[in-house]
């Protein structure tokens, strides 16, 4: 396969591969967080490239909210099988059943925040000390300041005031037992870079990224998928629309955008002229407060 990327994407790819190898070389038990979304699909592809021709030298972990899009679960299982990788599932439902977290109620209930507990518990149980994530700095203001190797204390917490200086390509993943580092290999990619790479590399994605007909209702100016996981309020009528998703999260908090884009080229054309960030457009969870992400991240979120 020969792929021709523009130079800047090649430079980004090289940087990401360097970061992934560095994290694996300097940790005991690395793991890759995989949501089934495009960013984690990209990190997974880069990780496969980093160790080729050897197999992926670490397992993949999914924090399962129990409110997933079925298309995403199907994609997850297929991808893991094709790579012959090991999948670990950390389940929010198990945490609820065991009484470790309490389900939110009401029309705005979401299991987003509830992911923190099973995520940190799984990290602890498996003694993972380097945890790959697909966050990008262009996504959100709190992310813009986060390091590529982001230290987490014994409680999994991030302290934005006390980050390690990170210079050149000299990453410091040193930690004590029980602490870990989150590693973000695609920190410097923008949404557009990701899409262009996915197109050029023919990286497979869940079908919900592409335009399809779906039963939705409108809430706060966003289109939410109608499902058993979200309670509709009075006046929220269900109708069918031609939509796609710009990010993959819970069915209860990920909104769709109206779009006829059914190919990667059409999506790229849309992204290139879009005037709304992907989070602003489609994450009900980030709209509640300007500092929502920062608060979640401090507690150990992705």
């Amino acid at each position: 396969m020969t792929v021709s990327h523009s130079n800047h994407v090649k430079a980004l790819e090289a940087e990401s591969i360097h970061i992934i190898r560095e994290a694996v070389a300097e940790s005991e038990r690395p793991v890759l967080l995989f949501s089934g979304g495009k960013d984690s699909a990209l990190v997974l592809r880069l990780a496969v490239k980093a160790f080729y021709p050897a197999r992926l030298p670490f397992p993949v972990m999914h924090v399962d909210t129990g409110h997933n899009f079925p298309e995403v679960l199907e994609f997850r299982d297929r991808t893991i099988t094709e790579l012959d990788a090991e999948l670990i599932v950390a389940s929010v439902q198990d945490s609820i059943d065991a009484g470790r977290v309490t389900e939110e109620t009401g029309p705005y209930a979401s299991r987003n925040r509830l992911q923190i507990e099973p995520l940190l518990a799984a990290i602890q149980q498996n003694k993972f000390d380097a945890v790959f994530g697909g966050a990008r700095r262009d996504e959100e203001k709190a992310r813009a300041k986060e390091r590529v190797f982001s230290f987490r204390d014994g409680f999994g917490q991030w302290d934005p005031k006390n980050q390690r200086p990170e210079l050149w390509s000299l990453y410091n993943g040193r930690h004590r037992q029980g602490e870990h580092v989150r590693v973000f290999p695609i920190s410097n990619w923008t949404e557009l870079d990701v899409w262009q790479y996915i197109r050029d590399e023919e990286v497979e994605l869940p079908t919900i990224y592409f335009s399809h007909l779906r039963k939705v209702f409108e809430r706060d100016g966003m289109l939410m998928a109608d499902s058993a996981y979200i309670e509709r309020m009075d006046g929220e009528e269900v109708f069918e629309a031609e939509v796609r998703f710009r990010t993959v999260g819970d069915m209860s908090c990920t909104a769709a955008v109206e779009s006829p884009a059914s190919t990667l080229d059409e999506i790229i054309a849309e992204v290139a002229i879009s005037r709304i960030t992907e989070r602003g457009a489609s994450r009900a969870d980030d709209r509640t407060a300007d500092a929502a992400m920062e608060d979640r991240k401090r507690q150990g979120y992705f």
Partner: peptide, 27 residues
């Protein structure tokens, strides 16, 4: 370009933050 909450409250920027922009020739 202001970042984290505490910094916003103090009205200052106190860490390195990364931003991205592109022109047709360069990123």
């Amino acid at each position: 370009t202001d970042g984290l909450r505490a910094e916003r409250e103090q009205g200052i920027t106190i860490d390195v933050a990364y931003r991205y922009f592109a022109t047709p020739k360069r990123k």
